[in-house]
Design a binder for these strands. Sequence first.
DNA 1: TGCCAGGCCGGGT
DNA 2: ACCCGGCATGGC
Length: 207
Amino acid sequence: MLDIYYILFDRFGPQHWWPGDSPFEVMVGALLTQNTNWSNVSRAIFNLKKENLLSFDALEALPVEVLAELIRPSGYYNMKAARLKNLLALIRENGGTLESLFNKDTAELRERFLAVNGIGPETADSILLYAAEKPVFVVDAYTHRILVRHGLISEEATYYEIQDLFTDTLPKDVSIYNEYHALLVRLGKEFCKKSKPRCEGCPLEGY
DNA sequence: TGCCAGGCCGGGT
DNA sequence: ACCCGGCATGGC
């Protein structure tokens, strides 16, 4: 897997993920981007920033209906507003700050995220890696599709099988995990779309 | 203009 | 234990 990483890095360079100004913003973005184009998410984030609402205290005080309206551009806005509230509740139950929440054993922290209604494996791992800076590899739809198309894993492979494929062979390093996932998304957007099964010009051709 | 995007949940079989 | 519909906006 490390050879693929170098191919992608040589081709695309550093991706500067996550596109967020603070761990809190990254966390909110991780939830809002569920099955959603980032350009829509950035509109929602902008709406919150514009009103000075992109903080734990401000969002906690905000009625869920108002929150829903502000994040409308990100799609699934009613569900996502409720899910954000669930996430805020988790922070509240764990000291009321991200620092106190993140100051836990990674595995334990991951379980707490997964216990939140609206947070699944990818969102949990995205928060762990990109907000909490824990060495956790993030798997997403692009990761799965890219590996399947290059014959590296079966269509039916589970999240954890795919994750293990990376963590078993890569150095356990936050910056590599960070860059690798971002590079896979970059590759996916350009060469591995669902609508284009041919992947013409893919830098991984031959794999 | 229909398909797709950095998922996840809940109900039915 | 799977399978599937629902959730929703904006870009191409």
